[in-house]
Structure formats: structure tokens, C-alpha cells
Amino acid sequence: MHPVIIDTDTAQDDCVTILLGLLDPACDLRAVTMVAGNVTFERQVHNAAMTLSVAGKLGEVPLHLGCDRPMMRPWVSAEDVHGDGSGGLSMEFDESVVDPKHGVDALIDAVNAEPGEISIVAIGPLTNIATAVVKDRSFASKVKSLYVMGGSNNGRGNVTPSAEFNFYVDPEAAQIVMDAGFKDLKIVTWDPVTLVDATYSREDYNNLCRFKTPIGKFFRRVCDATLDFNESVGVMGSTHPDSITLGALLHPELVLQEGSYRVDVECQSTLTRGFSAMAWDKYDLEPNATVFEKLDGQAFYRILEGILATETQPSREIEGL
């Protein structure tokens, strides 16, 4: 089993990622840490708690509140894409579901307790990870592997023509992470990997939604709004970049092609803020990341089917499910 912490801005596929972490036998999910991103901070914490609940795991996996804004910039949301990130679902929520330890301290303490053993899957802006790097300069050297969903491989963005959302929201944090010296930094991109390998047509999506389990019904509610938005902007399917990032860690056979790159994130330009420049071996620069170039989307689809078919007893009633 892989000891994992998921760092997330919970909406749509972030929820799916948490479910995968909770229910895949290959994953030992140690904690979930929250970072400002997709939707309001309060809303995404609620979404994470509901996800833990629908899997029957609320209270079993610590939920930590991390940085509620980017390091140097105002927060930018993706509510136009995801709505509230949960399809209007709600659950009775109280502070007892949240661990009092700050998310950054939880990350630092976990890797200090088990150096070289914990993998982190960062599927939101990289504010928490960068803050941990700044607070504890040994942090990067003690993380077994860091899997990041972010950027595009010199390709198109999804929040601007040049930038993917996670890198755009906090480009300074992303660059700190690129420079931190993580010994095993893996990146799943928006373009081309998500658009080619982790986007499922409406027909395939409807097939995933056939399961009448609590998790199956939850999946449809949290993903419907994003699919509708995607189709309105010419992305013809349900996108699952976050969950396939965890999938690539848990199931290395999903990785069909990868390359070593020097990755840097644009922080100065207004026009290309958050652009990820990925330099291959032609440029004689020291690589700092492995960038996945092709993943087995069909094999991952079958993994999702197994997760969605799993029967669970939700920890708390979820209204609207």
C-alpha cells in the first residue's frame, strides 16, 4: 500500500480523487489537506467532508484546513466551471469533522515522522506545498514522491489561453515547488494528458453513472455541472485530471509514456501568468520533474467503475443524494 496525503481544493474530480484514496486497496490515505482553489474555502471543506461521509469514512481520515488564499495574489475561483463543486448536495457540518492542526503543519509533521515514506498528491494550487517548503527547508527531501496535477506541456490552458487553473491561481507557489528539489516530482498536465486520456464522452460518463450505490449517485451529482460546462466550451466529455493523478501513483501501469523536463512557471507576465514552460533534453537544462505524456485512460476507467460499484454506508445523511 502507498501511504498518501491528498492536498485538494475539493470540487468535482477532487471528490472522485478522495473516494479513490479511501477505497482503492493500493492506497493508505493518511490525511486530506485543504488549499484555496476551485470554490470558496468553506464550501470546499464541506465538499471534502461530504466525500469522506459518503464513503463511510468521516472521522477516520483527518481533514486539515490549509492556506485559504494564494501566497501573493487574490484568490481566483472556478465556480463558473464547477458551481458549488457538489451539485447542490449538503450535509450537517460542524467543526468536529476538522482536525485542529493546520494543513501545512500536518504535511510537515507527517513527512518528518516517516522520512521517505509519504507520497503527496497535490491536485489544487500548490500554496500548501510551497508554504511547507518555505517553513521547513528539509521538507522536499523527506517526501517520497510528489504527484502534481498542474500546467500544460507547452500547450493550451483552461483558465486562460496559456495557463492551467492550478498554476494560474498561485504561480509563485508553483515555481517554489518546481525549484524545491523534490526527488520524485511527477506532473499530470491538462494538455495533452487530461484532454486526451482522462476525458470521457457523455456516453461513457453515463455508463459510469449507472451504479445506484451512494458513491455512484454522489459521483453524478458532483460531476454533472462540470460536464455541462465542458461541452459548452468544446471539451466533449467529463474531465478527470485529479483522480488519474492519484491513479498513476497507485497503479504505475497506467503510465504509458513519460519524459524528463525542466519545468518553470511564469510569474511575471500578465499575459502568460501561470504558463508552464517544459524544456526537454534539447535545451541541456537539469530536469526537475517527470512529466507524464500518455496515460492509459481506458484502464483507469475500469478502476473508476470498481470504485463506483462499491457499496458504502454514509457516515452522515447527505441531503439531495
Rank of each mutant, 00 (worst) to 15 (best):
G157Y: 02
V45C: 13
K217Q: 11
D136N: 15
G87N: 04
A31Q: 04
F275L: 06
S162K: 03
A173M: 00
V39K: 00
G85Y: 04
P252M: 04
A299G: 08
G83T: 00
L58W: 01
L23V: 10
T199F: 06
P192G: 14
R137T: 12
D184Y: 08
S86D: 05
E253Q: 15
K142W: 11
K217P: 01
V32H: 07
A163E: 03
I303K: 14
M149V: 11
G21H: 10
I123V: 14
V111Y: 08
A36Q: 09
E319Y: 06
D296N: 15
A132R: 04
G237L: 10
P192N: 14
T199Q: 09
A289K: 12
E114F: 13
D197V: 01
W190M: 07
K183S: 13
M50K: 02
P25N: 14
V54P: 04
T189Y: 06
D224Y: 08
L295I: 14
G274D: 04
G87C: 05
P100Q: 08
V235R: 12
M71P: 02
D28R: 08
F211Q: 06
G21L: 07
V177S: 03
E172L: 05
T33W: 06
R273M: 13
S243L: 07
G157L: 05
E172N: 04
G306V: 13
K186H: 10
A31R: 03
A11R: 00
G37Q: 02
E79K: 01
S315W: 00
P287Y: 12
N154K: 09
R210H: 07
R220V: 07
G150C: 09
V104N: 01
V97I: 12
I5S: 03
G59C: 04
G259M: 12
P3I: 00
S86M: 06
L20G: 03
T290R: 14
G85S: 03
E258L: 06
E231L: 13
M72G: 03
F182W: 12
E231C: 12
G37W: 02
C209R: 08
T272C: 05
I108N: 07
D284K: 11
S201A: 15
C67I: 04
P125N: 09
I187L: 15
P287S: 10
I307R: 07
V255I: 15
L20D: 02
K186I: 05
D99G: 00
A113R: 10
E42H: 12
V193N: 12
A110W: 00
V222I: 14
P62S: 03
S243W: 05
D14Y: 07
V134P: 02
C209T: 08
F218H: 07
K135F: 02
T312D: 02
M91K: 03
R302V: 14
P241W: 00
K101C: 11
G234L: 10
V263H: 09
L185E: 06
T270Q: 05
D7R: 01
A163I: 05
E203R: 15
D281T: 11
E172M: 04
F229Q: 05
T40A: 06
F182L: 14
